[in-house]
Design a protein around this nucleic acid. Structure first.
Lengths: 207, 207, 207, 207
DNA sequence: TATGAATGAGCATTCATTCAT
DNA sequence: CATGAATGAATGCTCATTCAT
């Protein structure tokens, strides 16, 4: 995908600058008005140079996705040790806050990126999403190992699917909402509640 | 939006054929490759004819959104009387099944449409989304009036936001998933559970 | 050019309505926005009907030119008897006023038509202009025969070319001027003066 | 108007080539058949390139008008010193010849351009025309200052309007005439006569 | 390596013209 | 005869991509 291996510092700088420019353009102009010339402009290079680092526009989008995914994976690795020590409500709140922060940083670059649903343009883009899912499952597994009572939950995969996907989707939806009817704290509280209640419920049945 | 009032049968047919073709093209080619020529082709008309019924491409998208929204609103109206009589778990399961059916009909036309998140391209498109939200709130309100014990829920708005948005988003996400880790029944069951548990929890606190 | 001979009253009505509509559309929308559909609309017929009377758009323009030219020729025939009796200044003033009137009638239909320079679209259109020239020469000849002293003018053709074309062009130019620096009366006076002086000068030399 | 500043030699060449091509296409095909693709073809570039230098077709026309106006203004500046020294007839003849030459150069490019009356399509185009009018008035004023006896002319504005507009319009008309009834020399002579006679007349009255 | 001018296929849209009704 | 829906070639314009410098 990346045409030229960043063998030199300058090249590395350019590749990053282009990816950065991609996010900026997407946030400022939307996907429909994001052109390679625009990206190159923001990156401070010429369109010709862009094509020395990326085979085509698609490749830039893929690199952006890669960047986004890597950033999420790093976040999850970072929070893991702390998260594992927390109880469910505190952990959920903690995770959701960190995730929200990440979506809002750099003028909401990632939030806007998420809303553009880039994967609708190329199915291959969404393959990366599975990596995040895997990592989340890992984290849950580690969490469960630190909180063995959770092993009594009937269906951990279902829990994962519901709570994790649900939380992520709702947060993105919420932050994109022009006039949300509840506050962010209410939302995060609610999601925490939901996790706690769900787990409690699922375990009662298995006592 | 619609340029020529369908004064003749043929015209009405064309308008519908164009909207249909729009959904088909979106599903098959994605939004990036959906051109007016393509839509006209699928509709079996010439590009010129398309413009006799719609002022521009945007107007076709708006008509599609309108169609989609109207279909959802009809579904909700249809479902309301039956739904109101059910208990929470049954009601949730019932609604989710009906919603899933709608997303999958016509080769998943609406599912693919939902994933394209057309509203990210033009905010005006998402105005219609509010209509659905309103209708859902109405339904919840009617449900609560038939099940007065639910009035003890602490925060109905939060419940709405979490459960309704969450369920819709998760279902769309699930149906778009190439290799989901759980079955649809598990998912719907889980969502039902979640609603039940959440409500139970929120009410315990207020006893 | 005209496809169907107006064998019936209704047909005649339609042909005239179309020509009329052509002038109206040209005046209101300019040539760039004058479409056959527009003309048909104004004429109160369908585009299909327009093509029963005219082979194509071009033919409508030709008929309009014909109409315009005929109207000018009629005007000239009308004014001839009166004009011939007048002295030069009075005659010039008289003619220019009648010509101005004609350009301004029907909301300046002919003025706007003249400004559109239709002949730039098709050279054949300007052939008609020669008919007017011829008629003008005839009138001048008749005038000269009633005012034999004018035979002493050195070059009647040059006089014709200068005074007649000049007056026509200047009047059209003047009436199209958004902010003319002189009044119409000053202009017509000036043109009268010019004719008188020119003739006086040309005759002095030949005494 | 011009999108890309000609930062390189090649660019400057292209801008000029496009303007040139515009005149050529207008002369050869008329305004109705002058398309951006056609202009680009004549200029030896692709349509895409045309749009790197001009924002749209309109901008090309504006640049052409600018070019035309600048050329006329240069001509007038060039001619001024010599013109001022001449008597009226010689000056008129001199100016008319120079103007005729300009209209006929480059295969009558400007003549054909003038006939197309581009300004009828967009009033903004004719703003430039006022520049020429102003310059002409300046010249007349300078001329009058060198020939103080002309101050006795009753109405210099009327004179300007008649003689200047008239001469320009008649010359353009004449040169566009397929079968003129007099020769160019006769015409220019006549216009000279007319100016001389008119002035003489206007001054007699004010002695 | 970087540049940026040039490319040209492709898109949204228009409109003169036709023809089934 | 009249209709007006349908046509489709043509237009102005964009933008991902290339390549001479």
């Amino acid at each position: 995908m990346i045409r030229r291996k960043p063998s030199q510092k300058r090249a590395k700088v350019s590749v990053d600058a282009i990816i950065d420019a991609g996010f900026i353009s997407l946030a400022e102009n939307g996907i429909a008005n994001t052109t390679t010339i625009h990206i190159a402009d923001i990156a401070g290079i010429s369109p010709g140079t862009l094509y020395q680092y990326f085979a085509n526009k698609e490749a830039v989008y893929l690199a952006m996705e890669r960047h986004f995914v890597d950033d999420i994976l790093s976040l999850l690795d970072d929070v893991l040790p702390e998260f594992i020590q927390m109880d469910i409500r505190a952990g959920a709140t903690f995770l959701l806050h960190r995730f929200t922060e990440m979506l809002l940083k750099d003028n909401g670059r990632y939030l806007k990126y998420s809303r553009q649903s880039l994967h609708t343009f190329d199915a291959s883009l969404s393959q990366h999403a599975h990596e995040i899912e895997k990592k989340l499952q890992e984290i849950i597994m580690q969490y469960v190992m630190h909180h063995p009572e959770l092993m009594r939950i009937k269906s951990i995969p279902t829990f994962n699917y519901l709570i994790l996907n649900g939380s992520i989707l709702i947060i993105v939806r919420y932050l994109s909402d022009f006039s949300p009817t509840i506050s962010l704290e209410q939302l995060i509280d609610g999601l925490g509640n939901m996790a706690v209640r769900y787990i409690a419920g699922e375990m009662q049945d298995t006592v």
